[in-house]
Simulated scan of single mutants.
Amino acid sequence: MIEYLPCEVVLDILSRLPVTSLLHSNLVCKAWHNLVQDPLLVCMQFSRTIDHDPCLIFHCDYPIQNQLFSLELSALSKDVQRVNKIRVPVLPEFEVLGSCKGLLCLCDSSAKDIVYVYNPFTRDYIELPKSTELLHQNPVFGFGFNQTTSQYKVVKAVYQKLPFRRCGLHHYYGGLISLQAEVQILTLGSPAWRNLEKLPYHLHQGPSQVSVCGRLHWRSWPRQFRSGCLIISFDLEDEQFREVPKPDCDGLDRPNFHLLDLGGCLSATIYDTYGQFEIWIMKEYNVKESWIKEFNIGNHVPRSLEEMDWNSAAQPFRDSKLYRKSSFVRILCLLKNGDILLLYKGRALVTYDRKDGTFKDLTFPGLPSWFEAVVHEGSLQWID
């Protein structure tokens, strides 16, 4: 009877489905195939993503490179929820730099100046123009969306490894890296990168991208002769870097915290050596006094990690670049039911009930053995 319904009613019904269900609807019949391609449906579906939990994109590079999988978090209450494999285009070995408004930003693992923007559900992607090549570069990336102009932007801060005889250097993991960064930015659709003013901060490429209030955020490394780390933001509209006030908390002066977006608020997670951590949340953006310590989360070891023989099972994965940058525990996002979703050692997903302080280990058919998880808003929009 659906063919007798007005088109706008059918579009409204379909727009309430998760993106993976829309992909399945695309195969029902020719009429539905045409509907799923309708730009109005794409916009309606994406506008409703704020009402639902996002999806997770799992990136695996061992034993096979460039593997991506997806999981709909909005369907966690279902008895059976599968992880779906994504058909990835033929690309060089890549790293996932960030996710924003339905698109992923990828870069070539070996040639950091080759950057792609990719929709994992439409398999649509573009290779961005190459930026100015700098020898011995150590880039930090950001990927965001300007709501005012409806434009995607890629930011690249490049730090050069300089000879030991130069002055004004910062000692970092056995090498000398310039304190100032050459900053370049590309607006999607533009033919070339633009140069911005040099950045006098050494940014840290965190485990996840943090985009809050139209700004991208990074933690800085401690500077010579100055104590403490800083929180640095980049405004996607006026393209200016600024310092964001931190709370009066000793943990945020040491480089053992990560920034994250928790329920639309800029937040910081401070870890200790025993897997415990506390979460600070800035309730009102850019107001120092609005920082509060919201949670203290205790130590937890998922059953899959307790039962695992690390000598035999983890040894092959140590060849993966994802293993080297994975921490023991990382917060992924805040779910709509109030639970916090956690990732343990690139292997186990766990929810934390902040009401009663309990943990729940999650298992899904098709979940890869080792992975890096990216919180993603699924969309069927085309890059052009």
Rank of each mutant, 00 (worst) to 15 (best):
K198L: 11
L342R: 05
S304G: 04
G174E: 07
C60R: 05
N66Q: 06
D339M: 10
L216W: 07
I297Q: 14
I292W: 12
L68V: 09
L97G: 11
Q37M: 11
P222K: 06
P92N: 03
R87H: 14
S77P: 01
W193T: 09
D113Q: 10
F295P: 05
D79I: 08
L11E: 07
L341S: 02
T20I: 10
R303M: 14
N119Y: 06
S304W: 01
N286C: 09
L176Q: 06
K283E: 11
H24Q: 13
W218L: 10
T269M: 14
K360I: 08
Y271R: 13
T363C: 03
D238V: 11
L162N: 14
S379L: 04
P302E: 02
A181I: 09
Y285H: 13
S150E: 15
H376S: 02
R48Y: 06
Q81D: 13
Y116P: 09
V212G: 03
N34P: 02
Q209A: 09
K112R: 15
L134T: 12
L332K: 04
E93P: 03
A31M: 12
H202A: 10
I331T: 14
P129C: 07
N195P: 01
K355Y: 10
N26Y: 15
W370H: 11
G338Y: 04
P92V: 00
L335Q: 06
D12K: 00
Y62G: 02
I297V: 15
L367H: 04
Y4S: 15
P163I: 05
T49V: 12
N84K: 10
K112N: 15
R82K: 15
R219V: 13
D108Y: 00
E197I: 01
E95G: 09
Y62H: 11
A75K: 07
I177N: 00
A75V: 00
G175L: 12
Y323I: 00
Y323D: 06
Y323P: 02
L266R: 06
V90E: 08
S25L: 12
L56C: 11
Q276N: 14
N84L: 13
Y152P: 01
R303V: 15
L17I: 09
L335A: 06
L27D: 03
P39T: 06
C167L: 13
G142N: 08
P368D: 03
L230W: 08
Q180V: 05
S150F: 11
E133M: 03
T122Y: 05
L199T: 01
V90A: 02
E278K: 09
S227E: 14
V140W: 00
V83M: 04
C213L: 01
